[in-house]
Design a protein around this nucleic acid. Sequence first.
DNA 1: CATGAATGAGTGTTCATTCAT
DNA 2: CATGAATGAACACTCATTCAT
Lengths: 185, 185, 185, 185
Amino acid sequence: MHKEILYAALSIVRDEGHHSLSLRRLAGNIEFSPTAVYLYFKNKDALMIDLARLGYQQLNSSIDRDCKSINDPRNRLRAVLRTYWDFVNHEKKLYLLMQETEMKLNELEPMYPEMQRFINSINQATTMAYGKENCTDGFLKRKCYMLIAIVQGLASLNLLHKGIDVSSQFQMLDDAIESLIDSLN
Amino acid sequence: MHKEILYAALSIVRDEGHHSLSLRRLAGNIEFSPTAVYLYFKNKDALMIDLARLGYQQLNSSIDRDCKSINDPRNRLRAVLRTYWDFVNHEKKLYLLMQETEMKLNELEPMYPEMQRFINSINQATTMAYGKENCTDGFLKRKCYMLIAIVQGLASLNLLHKGIDVSSQFQMLDDAIESLIDSLN
Amino acid sequence: MHKEILYAALSIVRDEGHHSLSLRRLAGNIEFSPTAVYLYFKNKDALMIDLARLGYQQLNSSIDRDCKSINDPRNRLRAVLRTYWDFVNHEKKLYLLMQETEMKLNELEPMYPEMQRFINSINQATTMAYGKENCTDGFLKRKCYMLIAIVQGLASLNLLHKGIDVSSQFQMLDDAIESLIDSLN
Amino acid sequence: MHKEILYAALSIVRDEGHHSLSLRRLAGNIEFSPTAVYLYFKNKDALMIDLARLGYQQLNSSIDRDCKSINDPRNRLRAVLRTYWDFVNHEKKLYLLMQETEMKLNELEPMYPEMQRFINSINQATTMAYGKENCTDGFLKRKCYMLIAIVQGLASLNLLHKGIDVSSQFQMLDDAIESLIDSLN
DNA sequence: CATGAATGAGTGTTCATTCAT
DNA sequence: CATGAATGAACACTCATTCAT
């Protein structure tokens, strides 16, 4: 069924990257025929979009699990970003698929809800960390965007030049968050 | 000859992205036969690497042109990063090719010189902005990495969600630089 | 389906040799598309291996048909070798394919069963002709190898220089067999 | 010049087999341009024929060197055949080229002289071994053909199934020769 | 509901050969 | 005498997709 196919595709992407995801291989891994995919997905593109959404679901779950119980605003923001960074680094191949999918989509359609929810998580954590009363909407939006950009940038760099060790990256991430939050005062 | 092919390929990439760059199309755009490409490039991969290098050459040229004459360290660093950011935003498709190429290569071979030179430019500007005497090598390396990551992150985000206007992004970039530099004290 | 393709390929090989067997031509001869071959054969190599096996099947069938009922050991051996020789001379192009295929394979994989069965036929006939009690395993193996070599050699020569008439060759084959068998005493 | 090209081609064939001999690679190995080959050889086919002739020249030289001084007829015949067998086993890739070339040619043109000379060497040795007075021309021709066939067959088998050790093969060769010669009486 | 059969378009790549210079 | 430039034809192969059943 739908889920079975999706998770088989996920497994291929995780192992070999989305360039190796072909409907043939997919149909080979599960016991379905290549045609069967079209019963549950309109397209290969549709499949990939669902994969991307699945990625965001996992990311959202991780954030819910690891950060919701943290009450201190700064700590929560820090935790959310770390969780994000963790996800990207543990799911590199999947994350690349998510990026590619977004790029195709953003010219046409609105964000899918899973992604929206992820953005909201970061928005909320950021807003709480800064305090609603202290700042305008634009200010918050920019800070939030910036924080995402930093994680995204560190992650991208990590994919490109494998030169920097993980602990250094964690420290850089923390420093950046700290410095961004402090820039308020 | 070599250059003609290279620029024809560049043009395709700029227009439609590197996924649309096939040797057949390339040979069609110029009046050459598909085989001719192999007289000047060993491979399609070799062609793409040369394209990536061409991209870095352009980036380096822009940095040389726009930043070399700036003497104030902070201003120069700011200018370098802005130029970088500009390049990414004006050459999105080419930049994507450069990223993909780096990802393929970084598992095997050393950086090509054009890229090395770009990294050096940022390194130098960062070093000057912080002042050599004030900080250890590791510290500088991290700051530098961080700055690249920020530009990279903002650029990636810009490719993904076209939602934020350019002037806001510039401001964010400046803020981030300012805050990173100030974090020294 | 599988068989149809196989026999179409066989026909091409028989007519023009295996060098002229391309997937395009093959697909052209039957009314299938070039892609269709890949539905039934993993590879061109796989197709050629199946062709070679088909060759050995035919050879085995001929031996079964023409020799099984012969009880006198020497006569049977003579018949087996003649049948072998006949096959090679009537299926020259196919036999060349079989040789080439074997050369590719013998570095990697075990003999395919059809070939094994052919070897066994010769082994058995030889063993019976010499009588098990009279000789060691090594002796038998050598004689057997030698007999195959003679047929093979006559066949090869026949492919190379078409100079000798068939009846002469038959006589030579018989002489050789006779002389080899007699060499026991 | 002619010879330089020829020996460069020979080297490629010896190393990787005649399937890997392309004019491109050849021109790459020497410092000539791909076009240069056409100044000295009409064709790739012409080049390959010359390669085959070169092979026979080497074979003839070996026979001259190692066998001419042997006076006892049987010993000489034995030596000639051994030398032949040696050549085939030390120059497998080249020998395959020679065979393939012959197969192409024998439908069109007469034997080239080097090959003729090789055949003559065997003919003479055989004639001497049997004694001219004892036998008809047809008889001699058949014996001679047979001897070549045996070497050829053992060599082919050796190429196909690498299973039998060299010393066994030598023994088989000697046995066969012995038995063929003795069959006279 | 599900599939086996089939396809058309496309991929990168290699090759022997020619011709103007 | 020699070559650099160029080509046309062919190659094996992969892919997403469709459709009759």
